[in-house]
């Protein structure tokens, strides 16, 4: 097991006051709270910060931890010295649960939340609800899909030690689902205690980034490259949408950046979103004499055209 430097985790010195510790904890908890943070490892950091605070906020636990000495390095292989905790008494149950091996070696398994909580005799309670995020393809929201989801959780093994368990679920992704919505799977959360019912599992969906579709709420955007003559003269072009190809009429005289709306072709729902095509003028390369000559002819046809007239130059 690895030594954890709780002072380093909270970014405070070993002689920090309880107030300093609390302030540092509050700041980091806000920074890494999984509902607020966009840091990729927010959840792990949040747990770590909570564990550090669980120890350092409590003068009894802090004193016991300090007694290990200041010479340990974070990550160093750690074994508690025999009898290190004699003379210390710990109170209370630990709030958050799910702490590291290091914590449990020092302070015991106070509050092991979630899965695998040891059942007390004749004690029944509903299992906790659990939450997970899953990434789906935008196309799944158009057609509905079945996706295999692998979830990890911690539970107590037969030897009483926590271990990570994987389980796989086959989940139906309903048509019309959008980023931020949840799928509730009744009874798929943490097992109940005693004869208590299991909790529910909430899957929050987000879309995988798509190479060309961008999603805003239930609307979907596509940047569509068009040739200058298609924009100027009008054309009918094939456009991909997550529901398949459509023929789109580009009106004559379109400028770059023009937004064309395909009503109701966004994410399906009772009131479906819209699909927007944003025109991007693509210039053919002038990489041989023939194409350079074409550009020169083009320029000669517009002797008074000044693309920068709005800038006053």
């Amino acid at each position: 097991m690895e030594y954890k430097d709780y002072y380093q985790i909270l970014g405070v010195s070993r002689d920090a006051t309880q107030d300093e510790i609390k302030r540092a904890y509050r700041r980091l908890a806000r920074k890494y709270h999984p509902d607020v943070s966009k840091e990729p490892d927010a959840e792990a950091r949040f747990k770590e910060v909570n564990e550090a605070y669980e120890v350092l906020k409590d003068p009894e636990k802090r004193a016991a931890y300090d007694q290990l000495g200041a010479n340990w390095q974070a990550g160093q292989e750690f074994r508690p010295p025999p009898g290190w905790d004699q003379g210390f008494e710990f109170h209370g149950d630990f709030g958050g649960g799910d702490f590291s091996d290091f914590f449990e070696a020092l302070f015991g398994r106070g509050g092991f939340g979630g899965f695998g909580r040891r059942a007390r005799r004749e004690f029944h309670a509903r299992g906790q609800d659990t939450h997970a995020r899953i990434l789906i393809d935008l196309e799944d929201a158009y057609h509905g899909a079945t996706r295999t989801v692998t979830l990890k959780h911690t539970e107590l093994g037969d030897d009483g030690r926590p271990r990570v368990v994987e389980r796989t679920l086959n989940v139906q992704i309903p048509k019309g689902i959008r980023q931020g919505q949840q799928i509730r799977l009744a009874g798929q959360g943490a097992p109940g205690i005693g004869r208590g019912e299991p909790g529910d599992l909430y899957l929050e969906v987000a879309f995988k980034p798509h190479p060309f579709y961008k999603v805003e709420g239930k609307d979907v955007y596509l940047d569509l490259p068009v040739a200058p003559w298609e924009a100027a003269l009008g054309a009918v072009v094939k456009v991909p949408t997550p529901a398949g190809l459509v023929d789109l009429k580009i009106p004559a005289g379109s400028r770059g950046g023009r937004k064309l709306r395909l009503k109701g072709r966004g994410i399906p729902a009772r009131q479906p979103g819209d699909f927007y095509v944003v025109l991007q003028i693509a210039l053919p390369p002038a990489d041989d004499e023939r194409s350079r000559e074409a550009y020169r002819t083009f320029a000669a046809a517009f002797p008074s055209f000044n693309p920068r007239s709005s800038l006053g130059v």
Partner: peptide, 26 residues
């Protein structure tokens, strides 16, 4: 072969009573 878990989509269209919302959020 995994059984298919069919969940309930919590979207804008499904309506809940106050009691159902309480239960869902404990």
């Amino acid at each position: 072969l995994l059984p298919l878990a069919k969940g309930q989509l919590l979207d804008e269209e499904l309506e809940l009573s106050l009691g159902e919302l309480c239960r869902a959020c404990h």
